[in-house]
Design a protein around this nucleic acid. Structure first.
Lengths: 200, 200
DNA sequence: GGCCCGATGTCAGTCGCTGACATGAACTAT
DNA sequence: ATAGTTCATGTCAGCGACTGACATCGGGCC
């Protein structure tokens, strides 16, 4: 019944160069940093990637999204980490653990890329807006995950909010060149500082 | 030396109807809620206000900003409240007091307007982005005000962040029709809940 | 009465973004 | 092998957001 399909793939000469989204993203980052976000045209990005403007918009909803594609992955990771925390753990600890568990996204290989990307974002209000709404989505998702754990409102929202605040501070330090600490260390330190500051 | 200028202003028939920005804002809010933000054209807004598209863009930087003009006022208010807090007050308490002092912006007269505006924002991601960057600016400004009070980083940022989290939760409740508490009460309650949740 | 000022209008142009349709290599079935 | 199907890409036309340059014109000023 079942037929074993043997695909001879000697030089799989595809019709198009593969990795169109990745090429577009790299071209965009180059141009955004060379001449600025506003001064860069989508047509120019596509051109540098060897594609057309129309194709750009098939992969990315708009000119900003090219730097944010894939952010659902981090969100899923954080949400499932909160959901899978042991039963007795307090909400804030569950969030802290989830943040540290997301260390896979914040390893040394990605650090330089993150720096480039972050430099672009801080230099452009339009990109900041997009970043902020992604973080807001993250907050909402984490609050929902906490409610799933029978955390009531408004504690769920407040803890999620505080958790993302810790995330932001830790991330800011992580991309800071004068800082060499690892992601979990930075998360733990920031969380401790929040606790200290908020409790009287 | 000084001449007393007497201006006889019987029916100051100005060349143009006054209050162009206010008319544009009202027209925008009507249209955004009638047919949606994306479906509304700037030309339509201007037309309903008896003006042209070009004039709209003279008053507002873009189609979103029409709902956010004047937000610097709240920011100034919060910043100066933090700055003017008595010397011994802890950072988080200074922020809490500042939030309550901003009650002038959140009185009963403005409550209905705030509801209309908020309904538009929650219904449109593009407007949410703008709202978020305004709140981020608020956070940054409050962190700066705290540093002015010799609060060191990262405590200043974390406290500002937590404070804005409290602000958001309190505001959400304030525009909730099922809620009749006053602004200071809501701020106090939200702040207490944050303290409870974050301290173990 | 002539002059300047300031709010508005007019116009043309760029760019972000979209829908409809075309193309052509690769895969599938016959 | 041939024909049809699929899928990533290209082409094209068009709308709407936004901008710069210039025109208009009523009111205040000398």
């Amino acid at each position: 019944m079942s037929v074993t399909v043997i695909r001879v793939m000697i030089r799989p000469v595809t019709r198009w160069e593969p990795g169109a989204p990745a090429r577009l993203r790299e071209a965009a980052m180059q141009l955004y940093s060379e001449r600025g976000f506003q001064q860069t045209t989508v047509a120019e990005i596509a051109n540098r990637a060897g594609l057309t403007e129309r194709t750009f918009f098939r992969y990315f909803a708009d000119k900003r999204e090219v730097l944010f594609a894939g952010s659902e992955l981090l969100q899923d990771e954080l949400v499932s980490a909160v959901s899978n925390a042991p039963a007795g753990v307090t909400p804030i600890d569950a969030v802290a653990e989830a943040l540290m568990a997301a260390g896979a996204f914040f390893n040394e290989e990605r650090r330089e890329y993150s720096r480039r990307r972050q430099a672009l974002i801080v230099a452009n209000p339009e990109l900041q807006e997009r970043e902020l709404i992604k973080l807001a989505a993250l907050t909402t998702a984490m609050a929902a995950a906490l409610r799933q754990r029978n955390v009531t409102e408004p504690a769920a929202s407040l803890v999620a909010e505080a958790g993302i605040g810790v995330f932001r501070v830790a991330f800011e330090r992580w991309v800071d060149r004068t800082n060499s600490e690892t992601w979990p260390e930075l998360v733990r330190a920031s969380m401790d500082e929040l606790r200290l500051a908020v409790s009287r």
